[in-house]
Design a protein around this nucleic acid. Sequence first.
DNA 1: TGACGAAAGTTCTAATCCGAACTAAATTAG
DNA 2: CTAATTTAGTTCGGATTAGAACTTTCGTCA
Lengths: 149, 149
Amino acid sequence: MPRWTSRQARKSPFIPTMRELARCYQAFERLDARLLRDHGFTTSQADVIFTLGNTPGMTCKELGERTLITKGTLTGVLDRLEGKGLLDRRPSPDDGRSYIVALTPAGEEAFEATYPEHIARIGERFNQVDPRKLEKIRSTLAELRAALE
Amino acid sequence: MPRWTSRQARKSPFIPTMRELARCYQAFERLDARLLRDHGFTTSQADVIFTLGNTPGMTCKELGERTLITKGTLTGVLDRLEGKGLLDRRPSPDDGRSYIVALTPAGEEAFEATYPEHIARIGERFNQVDPRKLEKIRSTLAELRAALE
DNA sequence: TGACGAAAGTTCTAATCCGAACTAAATTAG
DNA sequence: CTAATTTAGTTCGGATTAGAACTTTCGTCA
């Protein structure tokens, strides 16, 4: 994950932007991870729990697409959450290759106990930033992403 | 790394922005990693090489601050690059606790062979985006980061 | 229907990642 | 000047990461 240095920044106009993108993303990650550690989750685990909360469950494929976790990685994350008793994998009735991943009652409980508070705590930080600016960032980042993909 | 789902996005205004930030960062990462693999580097390794290129070297601490690599991680990355003969660690003359990390001649050679081409290839993608928009993103992201740190 | 290519998940490897504990050296306090 | 604190870097443990190879099942096409 090249996080561009200021020396490089002088050479090319896009580098400071990507450098700031990396810094900002990591700052968010660190804050998120710190808050979630209090609940006993890693960010990936919480992402899975938050995605499955209040749903009837979904396939690994769909879960991977929503969380942006690669399928090879997802297997391990699901193993650990299943080991904690927070979710289970049942064979899909429609497709012999896939599983439906869903929260157990204990998992739903963990979701309810964690999600609202977490969102609230993260949200406090964002109150300091103009929502219109956030929306502007979002749309321009989407444009940038299109160029990168 | 919670990458927010659209379900969550409906609940709170900042979530779509962070979701897009994560997606954009990861898209950049993937592109970067793919291009660097051709040169036999991981993104972290390239980040170190690019940061050390054309410098007299620096301490692990400074290198970690510039690359945003945590010190515990940095040790391993440096070990591997040292194993490839691309850099060396010499005890600092000023401080008995620290080392000066610098590229070897082979490392400088790798830097010259990799950096300009890599920047050029990444830069192609950015030509599609208005530089003023990029600058706008950068400054607003910096503002956002200040709220998160 | 029977082969063949695509898709869903798992497994594997090598690298990264963070945080915490640790060692050694430097700095500060009294 | 000595004791306490801080700092630089390494080591360690648990988890995540991507990608590639692999197994099983599905879908298609002839």
